[in-house]
Measured scan of single mutants.
Amino acid sequence: KNAAQIVDEALNQGITLFVADNRLQYETSRDNIPEELLNEWKYYRQDLIDFLQQLD
């Protein structure tokens, strides 16, 4: 998997990933985040941060 796929997957589930103060953050109206997504975000944290910062 790559960062773009993970960001896309999150968006499809109503979750927006973004970077604030060099930390990976998310916004969602969901009550909870599936644990497998959280684990994936932790595992790919630096890739996601790098990818999202390139988009800014």
Results as ranks from 00 to 15, higher is better:
Lys1Ile: 04
Asn2Gly: 11
Asn2Leu: 12
Asn2Pro: 12
Asn2Glu: 10
Ala3Val: 10
Ala3Arg: 01
Gln5Leu: 10
Gln5Arg: 08
Ile6Glu: 01
Ile6Met: 07
Ile6Arg: 02
Ile6Cys: 03
Ile6Phe: 02
Ile6Ala: 00
Val7Arg: 05
Val7Met: 06
Val7Leu: 07
Asp8Pro: 01
Asp8Ile: 15
Glu9Thr: 06
Glu9Phe: 06
Ala10Ser: 04
Ala10Trp: 04
Ala10Gly: 03
Leu11Phe: 12
Leu11Asn: 09
Leu11Ser: 09
Asn12Ser: 12
Gln13Trp: 12
Gln13Ala: 14
Gln13Gly: 06
Gln13Asp: 05
Gly14Asn: 06
Gly14Leu: 04
Gly14Met: 05
Ile15Ser: 01
Ile15Met: 02
Ile15Asp: 00
Thr16Trp: 12
Leu17Ser: 02
Phe18Val: 08
Val19Ile: 10
Val19Arg: 00
Ala20Ser: 13
Asp21Val: 04
Asp21Phe: 07
Asn22His: 08
Asn22Thr: 05
Arg23Lys: 15
Arg23Met: 15
Leu24Phe: 04
Leu24Pro: 01
Gln25Met: 15
Gln25Pro: 01
Tyr26Pro: 01
Glu27Ala: 14
Glu27Gln: 13
Glu27Met: 13
Thr28Lys: 03
Ser29Lys: 13
Arg30Met: 12
Arg30Ile: 09
Asp31Pro: 14
Asn32Ala: 10
Ile33Cys: 02
Ile33Thr: 03
Ile33Met: 05
Pro34Ser: 09
Pro34Arg: 04
Glu35Gln: 13
Glu35Ile: 13
Glu35Pro: 12
Glu36His: 11
Glu36Ser: 11
Leu37Lys: 03
Leu37Phe: 07
Leu37Thr: 06
Leu37Ile: 07
Leu38Cys: 06
Leu38Gly: 03
Asn39Pro: 03
Asn39Arg: 12
Asn39Leu: 14
Glu40Met: 08
Trp41Thr: 02
Trp41Arg: 00
Trp41Asn: 00
Trp41Gly: 00
Trp41Glu: 00
Lys42Val: 12
Lys42Thr: 13
Tyr43Asp: 09
Tyr43Ile: 14
Tyr44Asp: 01
Tyr44Ser: 04
Arg45Ile: 12
Arg45Cys: 13
Gln46Pro: 04
Gln46Thr: 08
Asp47Ser: 10
Leu48Cys: 00
Leu48Asp: 00
Ile49Trp: 04
Ile49Val: 08
Asp50Phe: 11
Asp50Thr: 12
Phe51Met: 04
Phe51Glu: 02
Gln53Pro: 04
Gln54Asn: 12
Gln54Lys: 14
Gln54Leu: 11
Leu55Cys: 09
Leu55Thr: 12
Asp56Met: 11
Asp56Arg: 04
Asp56Tyr: 08
